[in-house]
């Protein structure tokens, strides 16, 4: 399990990185924390001729509040979020500890996780729940991609050739919203078998804004729009069972060695119910 032959480069500016990408085309791959890419190299599931290590590019390490939300540079590590806080973004705070182990989070980056688009990953689910904006940097400047159109299949994103993910802006939720992140994994730190992210705002007992996302139960994280619809205008308590049932029905899960599609539906029903109990006022 050793990486295939490759060459390496470590640009110090975004422009240099983009130049290299342009020059080497699909031969080249950005290397962020390497926590997904290097295992893939070791398994020889990936054979880039050139790794462009984006770890030394200061522009990709920003973390700041902007008008549209909480901006996180692509190479900000998951550990840094855990250590320095998530700027009041509660869902992110709840989700990060579920990512692998401390040692993985020490290197793994926010941008890497989102670009990698693992169906079972936490951060893409958070991005989708918070209607995040992914900002791509390319030869012609920046381009915004909304979360719903960023994930286009398992391990596939909608970045164009020559583009890098520069940063992600996680959107705000209404001030009264409460968040929950529920995940079922076989062991602590394993990728989820199923998970649900929730941000729900209520006014006087009835739901005014419901965002529910399921992950690890399909090609990409999905918003549970039927369940969200069930919740609208009702009290969480009264809609709990219906929402869970709707959630289980609307996903398109698959079988694997950790469970059948049917089992994943049961898990989503359970996790939806529990997440909603968490956020009930």
């Amino acid at each position: 399990m050793k990486p295939p032959p490759l060459s390496y480069s470590r640009p110090h500016s975004l422009d240099e990185a983009l130049d290299l990408l342009a020059e080497h085309g699909d031969e080249a791959r950005p290397l962020a924390g390497g926590q997904s890419l290097v295992p893939m190299l070791n398994h020889r599931l990936s054979r880039p001729g050139l790794l462009i290590d984006i770890g030394a590019i200061a522009q990709l390490q920003r973390m700041e509040r902007t008008e549209s939300g909480w901006l996180i540079g692509a190479t900000v590590t998951q550990r840094r979020l855990e250590r320095d806080g998530t700027g009041g973004c509660d869902l992110l705070r709840l989700a990060v500890p579920f990512i692998g182990h401390r040692q993985i989070r020490a290197r793994g980056t926010v941008g890497g996780s989102i670009a990698h688009a693992d169906p079972a990953a936490e951060l893409p689910a958070v991005a989708l729940t918070l209607d995040a904006t992914m900002v791509a940097a390319g030869p012609d400047g920046e381009r915004e991609i909304d979360a719903a159109s960023f994930f286009v299949g398992p391990y596939m994103n909608s970045l164009a050739e020559g583009e890098l993910l520069s940063h992600v802006v996680f959107g705000e939720v209404p001030p009264t919203a409460r968040c929950s992140f529920r995940e079922f994994a076989r062991r602590k730190g394993d990728f989820a078998v199923a998970g649900v992210a929730a941000a729900v705002a209520t006014d006087d007992g009835s739901v005014t804004d419901a965002r529910l996302t399921a992950f690890a139960v399909g090609s990409n994280p999905v918003r549970l729009s039927a369940a969200e619809g069930v919740l609208a205008g009702r009290s969480i308590d009264s809609a709990l069972a219906d929402a869970a049932e709707a959630a289980a029905a609307e996903i398109e899960p698959w079988d694997d060695i950790h469970g059948s599609a049917q089992y994943r539906r049961q898990l989503i029903a359970t996790l939806t119910k529990r997440a909603l109990q968490d956020v009930a006022p």
Binding site: P3, R10, G34, N42, Q103
Partner: peptide
């Protein structure tokens, strides 16, 4: 394991515990 799972290769890199099997020496 050379895939980041077992932890046997953990080192201290700039104060953080890190898997040395899924990092390149060049990094």
């Amino acid at each position: 394991c050379e895939q980041g799972i077992c932890g046997a290769c953990t080192i201290n890199l700039d104060g953080e515990p890190v898997r040395s099997c899924i990092m390149l020496a060049a990094q």
